[in-house]
Design a protein around this nucleic acid. Sequence first.
DNA 1: TTAGGTTTCG
Length: 803
Amino acid sequence: MLCHPPSYPWAWCLRKTLYQDKAAMPVQLMKIIKGQSETPLPSHLQKENLQHLKEGCDHTNKYVQGVVTLSYPLTKLRDGTDFFKIVLQDSDNLFSQINSINVLIYGKMAEDCAKIIRRGETFIVAGFKVIKLPTVREDGRHGCHLEVSEEAGSAIYIYTTPGTTAASETASVSVAPKYVYTPLNHLKDGTIVNLYGIVKFFKPPYVSKGTDYCSVVTLVDPSNVKLTCTLFNGNLDSLPKIYKVGDIVRFHRIKIREYNGQMQGITSAGFASLTFDGTVGAPVVPRTSSKVYTFMDEEQKTIEELRIWAASNISISGPAARLSGVQPMLFFDLTCQLVGKAKVDGSSFLLKVWDGTKCPYPTWKVPVEAKDLEGEKVLLHQLRNLAVDILVYDNHVQLAESLKIGSFLRIYSIHTKQASADNEDVSHIEFHLHGGTCYGRGIGVLPECNPDVKELKAFLESVDLADSQNMENTCSMDLDSTFGNVTDLELDLQRCQQLSVTVLTDHQDLSNTELKTITNSTAPQQYRIRAKLRTYKPQKLHQSVKLHCSKCNSLQEVPYGDDFDFILHGSANTAPNPELHNTSWYESVTWTTQDQKQREIAIHFVKHDEMLQHPEDTLLMIEGGTLKEIWKLTKRFKCVIPVRSTEDDLELLDLSAPFLLQGNVKYYGCKQCSTPKPIKNLSSIAAEQQPSWEPTEVAQVLGIELLQYVFIMKFTLVDETGALNAYLFDYEKFFQIPASEILTNSFLQQKMQMTMNTLCPPGRKLGDLPWLECFIRSYNVRDATKNQVYYQIFDTTVAEDVV
DNA sequence: TTAGGTTTCG
């Protein structure tokens, strides 16, 4: 029985208006006087212990009593019947093995209960049906649930505690919300707030380097302000259960701080969250680990409003990727079932998963010893043509190890990589979940009740495993043609037979020459050819990007960001020289960082006509900045030049570092051919009528020989008569992608990989490869010992409908 | 404390 302090004014008002005629009402509110109900229960009813409830037994004169620990929002079943679900806990037997039970309430009773029931209240039900659940529960909840409705003759008695009584007498009077929610544009540093937001980006919980799990969530709300929250908790379950962008969250007691000039959310003591499906029209059911939470009609309305706003203001990703639709060199999220797992080595772990569809390319198999492979052997064998191996690395290993076979997963940002082993003629596809958490890379476990899981389960059950075992190596088969790319395949085949995937930009009058004739001829000459691309190098396309000096004709690798970082660190040891600040052509600002390093930073904004320009037109020079700071500045300003102070002038850093950053591109100078000139030469550009700050112009006045980004690839071309290797040397024309931008633009990287997949589709026999029409020129390269003939592709571009 | 979104290069 409920226990209240005796001093409490017990004569509180019942929510009686709707429920005055107790005899006729199936849902009754009971008044409690000094711990006892004022109105006794009908005398024929006896209390039943939860342990004794069994399907098929006679419970006619029994009642079940418990405290409401959880209530779900009122929903409607398909046939329009109202439905309300609560969880009752037997507070008299809290520590017994079974201490709670689900109560499913239907029809008018559901509606009535939803209006008045609050968590913590004592709930008594008689005239229930006991229904056995299909699966055994392990969470202390009863293996049966109770079904309750007016039609079944059920009766419900609710003892309301004064503290939780809603202010309303009737459901038609709205209840004042207990919580105040702050819009994202009104957040203030140092406050703890409650808020709602739509998930714009998230990292599923991962093991942090400290003691907790971490999840990073970026929210947006109708004020159009974004907030990135960093959430920590030692308990995985206590972090928000976000499954996709567009989900809606409600955070309670999140701390707001300013970080890098922006508001940031971080977990504070007592942080709690609810997560909702963001789909308009989906049931408003919170996902949470909290046993107790508030959720009222007003909040349901808020969710529905946010869903509608999000529908037209948030770009929701397209249809989910399936294995049948994967392309090499893409990052994608996969919803799948785990069928096998194995430790590979200390830093990688294998997950075998399937989604019922077949990957159109040959997929790799990670070699592991049979004894190390966990999973049902028979099923693994049956699924050998459908399941794929995903290798997860580093920080994902720990989470992967803990996954249960059979569970449903969403793996975020899997990388499909094209590769070929020494003993393979055709390349295969590899699936990697690389280390780190960029772009939300990680693994999430989806509950069985998730709608995507329900759909996947239904689909997996419909897959005929006998069929799939017959399709050994028929890679373009697609079990699920509605999701497949049949038309793409047909197009590809047509193209194989006749059209060329490349076109000539000049010399159309030239006729084709067979490859054998070319290799038998002396160089230099020019030819038009029609051939197939059997293979190309490098297969890792990022390795094809080099820096070229047109003066000395040298090629060099694009330096890694680390090198730049190292140089910046080194130059930060030289403090900005105040005598060089604020000259006739630039204005300077300086500050010292607040951290332990007390780093001095100076930024010099180059003026135009003695005035500062708009940031997007401004060139600035920075001393003492970090990689990240410089990167941020490039987002906002036209150009950034990293410099350091000498005694009498500013100077460029070592030429291993970019001398200029513009947009996403780092511009480098040739060490051999550059003769740096004084920085003040920039003032001549600043004095132009409309300074454009073109990299070539900036390089010229600074005495820098600009290195150009270029794609260098080796194509192995074949026709009926022979084969030859031809080099592609392309700034932009062939792929119609600027080589300078590819390293920092994942969209362009995908575009280039897709182009290569069209030119040389992986897993295809030679006869099924498309034709390429190209111009090539032969040339001689002589060294001390021999003369060699090389070939280079020119005046050729990828066909318009390929890119 | 942890991370503070901005893909690996195995």
